[in-house]
């Protein structure tokens, strides 16, 4: 009976192979995944290009008039690129500005903290297994949960303010002050994602043969020099991966920040993805053309970063 079942499953594949030849069979197996990828990734990307080059508030592509590069022109229309107020689409440029600052602070903080944490976790210490897991837990949490936890901590009558007041301090409206809320979006974002990068760096650290450290000890190398001349150079491939992945993710930051601050106060923590989302789907008339054009610009930046990452990991393989 089982043999009959097996023959039943084999039959269409054998027939295909007879028709196509053994050399083409791999394509048959890759086809389903390609189809899924094509329909859910490539097709929307192509549609997005159509949306970016059309205008109007209609959802159906056929009802949108073609306007060429008008949306891009409008987005990039600025008197002085360094002055947000001189731009036609000032909310776009404000979110770009916010995103640039966010990416700079968040990535540097996260890479440095991940490196330090990985170095500490690489040593023999009590409860090492526990700590290694603990740093990874936030990565497993849904971004909404992360944001709600921190909102609960940071709100005016939240845990942090309660501690401040109990110690004789003043209540600080963390999420209502532009600088503080920016600071906290960086903190929350680092907290939520650091574990993943710690893992990558930890793997890299453990790949360094321990007898290199012993040879360095025999060579009388002080600790800082061991880190600077041995650990860090050998960790460089992993650092490059962490840096580029972190950059890409920072540019895409949205979920936890949207729930934490909603982009507020004002537009102090509104980053580019939120701008795209709101312009296209929330708020007033859905100006999908502008949003699609903005998303293509962001996509271009991410493409450059991804190419950098490919270069970095190719160099690492040498």
């Amino acid at each position: 009976m089982r043999a009959a079942l097996a023959r039943l499953i084999d039959w269409p594949f054998e027939a295909l192979q007879r028709a196509l030849g053994a050399a083409r069979m791999p394509y048959v197996f890759v086809l389903p995944n390609l189809l899924v990828f094509g329909i859910f990734v490539v097709l929307p990307m192509l549609l997005n290009i159509w949306y970016a080059t059309t205008s109007g508030a209609e959802l159906m592509p056929g009802q949108r008039p073609f306007t060429g590069l008008a949306n891009f022109a409008e987005l990039l229309d600025c008197g002085n690129y360094l002055n947000v107020a001189s731009c036609r689409q000032d909310r776009f440029w404000r979110s770009v500005d916010n995103t640039l600052w966010f990416v700079a602070f968040q990535v540097i903080t996260m890479v440095v903290l991940s490196l330090i944490t990985a170095l500490v976790l690489n040593r023999k210490m009590a409860l090492r297994g526990f700590f290694r897991a603990v740093f990874f837990y936030p990565v497993l949490l849904s971004p909404v949960v992360v944001a709600l936890i921190w909102k609960w901590i940071l709100q005016p009558d939240g845990v942090l303010n309660a501690i401040l007041v109990a110690n004789g301090g003043q209540r600080v409206p963390f999420l209502l002050d532009p600088s503080w809320s920016f600071f906290w979006t960086v903190v929350v974002s680092v907290w939520a994602h650091m574990g993943f990068y710690v893992l990558i760096l930890l793997a890299g650290l453990q790949a360094i043969p321990p007898d290199l450290y012993e040879a360095a000890a025999m060579d009388g190398t002080p600790q800082w020099r061991v880190f600077w001349r041995i650990t860090l150079p050998l960790l460089m491939p992993n650092m490059a991966v962490v840096l580029v992945l972190g950059l890409i993710r920072a540019v895409q930051a949205f979920d936890e920040i949207y729930v934490l601050t909603g982009g507020g106060p004002g537009t102090a923590t509104q980053y580019i993805v939120q701008y795209i989302y709101e312009t296209a789907f929330a708020g007033q008339v859905h100006i999908m053309g502008l949003a699609a054009a903005a998303s293509m610009l962001v996509g271009g930046v991410l493409l450059v970063l991804t190419l950098l990452q490919l270069l970095a990991s190719a160099r690492a393989k040498q």
Partner: peptide, 30 residues
């Protein structure tokens, strides 16, 4: 005393050469 302070040098079974440095840099490191 630490390893360095004893005035010893060791050849490891796996040689433990610093892979990212040239031979000259390996020799010069200590």
């Amino acid at each position: 005393r630490s390893a360095a302070e004893r005035g010893l040098a060791m050849v490891f079974q796996s040689y433990a050469l610093y892979p990212h440095m040239t031979v000259r840099q390996n020799l010069a490191f200590g």
